[in-house]
Design a protein around this nucleic acid. Structure first.
Lengths: 126, 126, 126, 126
DNA sequence: GTGGTCTAGACCACA
DNA sequence: GTGGTCTAGACCACC
């Protein structure tokens, strides 16, 4: 799985990393139960500090995306995790995105098409 | 138009404000050409620093959502502006949202329904 | 409020600090809405690194004990936060403590007395 | 006696194991003088490393919960052992638990009821 | 080997 | 002023 970080971005490194891993899980690039690289390894590969990766893993763990097993390191979490707050949060984010798209002249049908394209890339199954 | 800011949120105040104004434009609560309150006025109403509102307005202007006229203050921008980078950015944001929704077990049809509901609230026309 | 950290303890500094702040809230030493010292200030007072205090604050925030206001720093959270998982967790911890007390010969009545004494120190009200 | 370990828990395996054995003793599931399984046996049953079980037994011995006889293996310790530091430690742990419960809105009477329920499960006698 | 903690010191975004 | 992020490098606990 290819991860690319933009050092000059506004979004913090640990968040960029977190996002890319989440997408990797959803697309199936990171299979369920698959072992993630070690903190040190990933930090070295990406040329960033171990603490940054550490923080990312802790965040992903806290959000239920991965599980950290003392014996074998970090793995993709096997269970789908439904969060009650997630719907509200999702709706809020989506509303903003749709508002921006609308103002820029994208109509609903083109938006839905875009969604379909993106969904077709997601192969994650429970 | 009602604006509510969460002081303890992760999202900076100016960004919360910016987002709510963008949504206001898309839903039509803020009509095209409509005059926005003055920086001072809005800052006072919201109980925040004028610098923060100032930053918000500057950002909205830079992103093309409003125009700032020295004599008449800030107005909702009359024209839709297709930004070249916007679609790339949109797709990226959407991908992340969809990834998260997928992992949490929401399927495409439910997602599309949610989008439709949100679109039906948007009345902005060019 | 007096905070004392044991550098040679098994419990990490950030956790010791977190625990003492939680107790401070419950006893009322830290009143509701009361402002906590700044990260830098507290770090300096305790002779530890700012990141350690930072981590503590982030943890307390995530657990709902404090609220971080961008304008004024960290404050004791005004609302009581009931967590559904808390009961289970509480019971588990309590069971272990009671088991140990039992084996060491403390009977229920002495245990309850001890609880009462501790409760009488807690003045936190919602 | 059923022992269940969570590999993804914050608490180290040896500590989880230690805690469950202590509770087993207090509830009487492990009777006084009862022989514990051998290190190898238990490790195999639980699917963990023998070093981990070894460490657990050494800890339990050091804390006086079991005695280890070279010829007959580990047995539940026959005598109750009042440790001088224990009451201080107990009080500290209890204070933290009560603080958290208080903040989350549990009052003393409900707490005491919970304690009673737990005590009723403990059948250990000296 | 793994993740977790801590330090010292720097820089940035926000208000 | 505040908290948040990041680095480089060290040490520790667990398995």
């Amino acid at each position: 799985m290819i991860i690319s970080l933009q050092l000059d971005s506004e979004t913090p490194l640990f968040e960029q990393l977190r996002n890319q891993i989440v997408i990797g899980i959803a697309t199936g690039e990171l299979a369920e139960q698959e072992k993630l690289p070690s903190v040190r390894q990933l930090a070295e590969d990406l040329g960033i500090n171990t603490m940054t990766v550490n923080k990312t893993y802790a965040l992903l763990k806290q959000q239920g995306y991965i599980v950290i097993d003392r014996r074998h390191g970090a793995k993709v979490s096997p269970t789908a995790h439904e969060s009650p707050n997630h719907s509200a949060e999702l709706e809020e984010q989506l509303q903003l995105i749709i508002a921006q798209a609308t103002i820029r002249g994208m109509d609903q049908s083109r938006f839905q098409t875009l969604c379909s394209q993106i969904f077709s890339r997601m192969t994650y199954q429970h």
